[in-house]
């Protein structure tokens, strides 16, 4: 484990040093990319100045909204769908092809329908995430041992009670995986749509900084977004591993 960590730190440090060297040597010119240490300084300045906090807050609020909607809808749909075999089999081809469809291509359509506000962005984040949650949910429910379901019916539990007391707790690791996916997709959806066309938000600010050659804002913001998504992903992955380890899986 230690060696793996060392390796990872080494790779990241190596890449940063390489970029730094290339920037300082002028192979990558200043207009294309400022050296990494400069970006770090700019990022600190940007965060201290606090001018972009409303934008960051707005993006994150939309991400959370899209995540919440996708997660709750996905879990409910997945749980209900698991009971109806024919419906599930009919939807199977949709689930299998869903992630091949460029959901972002619907963004223009949503803008025309809902207007250029938060609605289309949240909807894109929601649409990207919801199917991943449903599929993960179905996958987890498939693994619930028959004996647990039988026990539930012996205890005369209704479908709702069975879900809350038996199946969902059993699926905890899957719920976590689903949360991870939904969060990542909500992030991609919201920031991505802001970037394509919006009036505010982090993605919008990046696009705006780009058109104004404002590298001192653009690069720190990009780094901030990358860090946010990597940290969120990392925290959930870690939690997932702990949960799996406790159950003796993996």
């Amino acid at each position: 484990m230690r060696r793996v960590r060392l390796y990872q730190v080494g790779v990241i440090a190596g890449l940063l040093l390489l970029l730094e060297a290339l920037c300082l040597a002028g192979v990558i010119d200043k207009i294309t990319m400022p050296p990494p240490h400069r970006i770090a300084v700019d990022l600190v300045k940007l965060l201290l100045a606090g001018k972009l906090y409303p934008e960051i807050g707005k993006s994150l609020a939309n991400v959370l909204l899209a995540f919440g909607l996708a997660y709750s809808t996905g879990i409910v749909t997945g749980t209900v769908l698991h009971g109806y075999r024919t419906a599930r089999e009919t939807l199977d081809p949709l689930f299998a092809t869903y992630y091949a469809i460029p959901v972002f291509a619907f963004y223009p359509l949503f803008i025309v329908i809902f207007g250029l506000g938060d609605g289309p962005q949240v909807l894109i984040g929601f649409l990207l995430g919801v199917v991943a949650v449903i599929v993960t949910m179905l996958n987890g429910l498939d693994r619930v041992p028959r004996v647990l379901r039988k026990t539930a019916s012996i205890c005369r539990m209704g479908p709702f009670e069975t879900a809350v007391h038996v199946t969902l707790p059993f699926c905890a690791p899957y719920l976590l995986t689903a949360a991870k996916l939904a969060l990542a997709y909500a992030f991609i959806g919201v920031i991505g749509s802001e970037f394509i066309m919006a009036r505010s938000g982090m993605g919008y600010e990046i696009g705006y900084a780009y058109t104004n050659f404002d590298n001192a804002t653009m690069y720190p913001l990009i780094v901030l977004i990358l860090l946010l998504s990597i940290v969120m992903n990392g925290v959930l992955t870690h939690w997932e591993k702990l949960l799996l380890a406790r159950r003796g899986q993996r």
Binding site: K180, F187, I222
Partner: peptide, 15 residues
């Protein structure tokens, strides 16, 4: 894989 790669687009355009 899970980062919003679209934000990298300006960098790619510059490069």
């Amino acid at each position: 894989y899970s980062i919003p790669k679209i934000t990298l687009y300006p960098i790619i355009l510059l490069a």
